[in-house]
Amino acid sequence: MKILVCIKQVPGTNKVEVDEKTGVLKRNGTDSKMNPYDLYALETALRIKEKYGGSVSVISMGPPQAKAVLYEAFAMGADEGALITDRKFGGADVLATSRTLSQGIKKFGEFDIILCGLQTTDGDTAQVGPEVAEMLNIPSICNIEKIEQVQDNTIIVDMDMPEDIERVRVEFPCLLTVKKDIFQPRLPSYIKQQQTQKKDIDIFTFSDMEDQNEKKYGLSGSPTHVERIFPPTSDKIQQHWQGTAQEISGQIYGLLREKKFIR
């Protein structure tokens, strides 16, 4: 069984501010890390491998330094890795990212199960997984909270829906996105880290893509345009309330109604 996990490198912190004059993002701190949600996807892949055999590959799209997350995955037990990187891929929105990832996945190999995190902490859309599945023309199941079992060429999983848990059987190949807490992610192993720190990874660039239409990648392949960014308003204003409990509870009640917490 061949398992692939899509992992992304994200900024170490979400603490960003907008320069009000220029509209440019000011990022405090430049450290980056593996998208925390992807740790759960990777852990799920490793557990499936440990129970049923097979291999775990990881793939990431990003600038050259995103290699770091692949090595982090090796230290946790992933077997091989690929990085999709090219200046032509910069500025990609969900559609262009998914297209590039799906093309990179085709280049990397054939997989029975592709795992994604539920969402990223920077993009925060939870859309890349299902879009990749659509482009690969394979079924996708999102919000998985339990892996029940692998059987022949299928996997049985529990999907978390608003009011119930749906147990579904999906045929291979398929793409799954897993919830946080499906398994507790393991810590990287020092020994594995030592063994894999010089491991080769595959690098895919634009010339490796099957679809050679440049306009479909990066900024020009992105149907959505960010027109402007601005700091959030209102709520961060601080208010101090004091008075009798009668007055205060009345104020809170009014606020909760206004903000639609009570209908």
Binding site: V94, L95, P130, E134, S140, P223
Partner: peptide
């Protein structure tokens, strides 16, 4: 959240 992205990808449009 899982249906909309598949549709958007099929029509190569923004979501």
């Amino acid at each position: 959240r899982q249906l909309a992205p598949r549709v958007a990808a099929r029509f190569a449009t923004g979501l």
